[in-house]
Amino acid sequence: MLDHLQHVAIEGPIGAGKSTLARLLAQRLQAQVLLERPHDNPFLVRFYADPARYAMQTQLFFLFQRIEQYRELAQPGMFTPRTVSDFMFAKDALFAQLTLSDDEFRLYGQIHREMAPKAPAPDLVIWLQAGPQTLLGRIARRGLAMEQGIDAAYLQRLSEAYGAWFERESSVPVLAVDTERFNPVERPGDVDLLLQRLAAFKGPREVFDLGA
């Protein structure tokens, strides 16, 4: 019943649980998993310490990294078997608009238009949501030193940026998941419920909330 979903992208703010869910879904769907590689970015630690100074370098590194990943997926037949990713290509521009100055964003946009591949859109985006305090708690528990300076205001802006992007890009099918109650690690049955919801998805915008 999920054969039409050849590429499922999982998105959401830092701490939402994207990579964890991508691995779990890929395992259940017998799919290949495509994950971000933030630790390959040599500017990321410096960005968290001094965002204004290192935002441009950080964004360009991520842009080129994602270009390489998506060029591989854009090859004929590369979406067979099914792919589950913990990002969509469009997130790079979303973060760039949030972190860059106006002049930097205009320059970034020129580079993006010249370099970005014609990346195939995901068949479905699973948008993981949680409040800033919940996200901060998860970030603290995973204990990555470079992330400990992230504050609630930044996470709120990031969540709002995702909301604005999905509102603009109405052609992208989106299943929004409230992760305040969704815990696929401690409750594997939550993955079963999500798979059932995916099978019943009609689109283009739906919500999956275990507390509803």
Rank of each mutant, 00 (worst) to 15 (best):
D3A: 15
H4I: 05
A9M: 05
I10G: 13
G12R: 08
I14W: 10
T20G: 06
R23C: 02
L24N: 00
L24C: 00
L25R: 09
A26C: 00
Q27C: 00
R28I: 10
A31Y: 00
A31P: 00
L35R: 05
E36G: 07
L44C: 04
D50M: 05
P51I: 05
A52T: 12
Y54M: 05
Q59M: 07
L60C: 08
L60N: 05
F64R: 07
F64S: 00
L73F: 04
A74P: 00
M78C: 06
S85I: 02
S85P: 03
D86M: 06
F95T: 05
Q97G: 15
T99H: 12
L100C: 13
L100D: 08
E104W: 03
R106W: 01
L107N: 07
L107M: 06
L107S: 10
Q110R: 14
Q110T: 11
A116H: 11
A119W: 15
P120Y: 03
A121H: 09
P122C: 13
D123T: 08
I126K: 07
A130Q: 09
A130G: 14
Q133F: 01
T134H: 03
L136F: 06
G137C: 03
A140K: 14
A140Y: 00
R141F: 04
G143N: 13
G143H: 09
A145R: 13
M146G: 01
E147N: 04
D151N: 14
A152Y: 03
S159E: 13
E160D: 15
A164L: 15
W165Q: 13
F166W: 15
T179E: 02
F182Q: 09
P184K: 07
P188N: 04
G189P: 08
V191A: 13
V191Y: 01
D192H: 08
L193R: 15
L193P: 07
F208R: 03
L210F: 14
